[in-house]
């Protein structure tokens, strides 16, 4: 695997301070390699967006990064800890190295400015020597890149369709050729046909420009198709991380399995699906031990007491935080495993 471009080490994010603080992200470590697509999946409230905002220091108060490190490795030069940067340094890094396509990108464009103005603004802020003509040329180039006719440059956002606005947002994120693009549910508000068009384009662009993508969504079936590796979040933690194919073929964590089983398949056999019983945990009152144990069909004796650690079960290519995959976690492990397999 290629070298890492962004390393998150033991990141924790709280909302609020003191004893009332809600831990939205707990001790998350994640590595994004150069040029790969890393999918981050989880339900609403699992902390996936908070993680993205926390690591880019975009989190509005009362969100606080309470611990950990986020290390960015530039193409040439020494690694930087993003959490330790001061304002001017951060300003320089943002967008030119790491850019974001926001959730609900349709509303992230300024309605009173033309698309071209907004695109040029980005370039102007980072490249002081650029001329208006060169900026406009670059903006036109970007629009072509994402497949929008250049005569749309002088349109206002409301004159564009949802799909086009989304493409403008992607164009804007790519304006300075960053090495990392974070996409926070970029296609959730779009129809499947438009989603497919945008994702196809994204795959092409990535092949051409070679940036790494952190793709955040709740749609696991989309991620399996799109990404190289997938990390699954639940209750502020990463519960499983694996190669996309591995995760789809043999998920280890019961939550991953439940999520995969929650999507009715369009092709293949028509099977009975159950979803996951119960509802997502309340971050203010997290269950003891493994956060998933109250909903887990395979929970056994250590689950309620002790938090499982994210670790590699047998090979080094994947990791899972579940007592089922810790050898010797309890005698009952074998029994409960065999009983569930017998039932299913």
């Amino acid at each position: 695997m290629s070298e890492p471009v962004l390393e998150i080490k033991n990141l924790s994010v709280d909302y609020g301070m003191g004893p009332d603080a809600v831990q939205a992200v707990r001790d998350v470590s994640l590595t994004l390699h150069r040029g790969e697509v890393l999918g981050l999946a989880g339900e609403s409230g699992s902390g996936k967006s908070t993680l993205a905002y926390g690591m880019t220091r975009l989190l509005p108060p009362p969100g606080v990064v309470s611990g950990g490190e986020v290390v960015y490795h530039p193409q040439d030069g020494a690694p930087v800890d993003i959490l330790g940067l001061n304002r001017p340094q951060l300003r320089k890094l943002r967008w030119s190295e790491i850019s974001i396509v926001f959730q609900g990108a349709m509303n992230s464009l300024n309605p009173v400015h033309k698309v071209v103005t907004q695109l040029c603004d980005v370039i102007k802020a980072h490249d002081k020597r650029s001329t208006p003509a060169s900026r406009r040329a670059r903006a036109a180039e970007l629009m072509k890149l994402v497949g929008i006719n250049t005569d749309r440059l002088d349109s206002y956002p409301h004159q564009l369709s949802g799909g086009m606005r989304q493409r403008v947002m992607i164009a804007m994120a790519l304006a300075l050729e960053p090495s990392v693009v974070i996409m926070d549910e970029p296609t959730t508000a779009l129809d499947v046909v438009m989603q497919r068009q945008i994702l196809t384009q994204l795959a092409e662009l990535r092949e051409r420009l070679g940036f790494a993508v952190l793709f955040i969504t709740h749609d696991l079936s989309l991620l399996v198709e799109l990404s190289d590796r997938i990390a699954i979040m639940y209750g502020g933690r990463i519960v499983e991380e694996a190669n996309a194919r591995q995760l789809y073929r043999e998920p280890l964590h019961p939550y991953s399995l439940g999520l995969l089983k929650s999507f009715p398949a369009l092709r293949g056999e028509r099977r009975e699906l159950t979803g996951i019983p119960g509802s997502p945990p309340d971050l203010r009152a997290m269950p003891s031990g493994c956060a998933f144990h109250p909903r887990c069909p395979r929970a056994f004796e250590p689950c309620a007491d002790r938090d499982p650690v994210l670790a590699a079960p047998e090979d080094k290519t994947r990791s899972v935080a579940c007592w089922l995959h810790v050898p010797g976690a309890g005698r009952t492990a074998e029994n409960s495993t065999s009983s569930t397999t017998a039932r299913s």
């Binding site: 198709e225 789809y248 092709r267």
Partner: peptide, 19 residues
Amino acid sequence: RLLVESAPDPDRLTGRTDA
């Protein structure tokens, strides 16, 4: 047909979304 083709399909693995 377009609608069915566009739906995410986990069996069509990793990025090679050649429409």
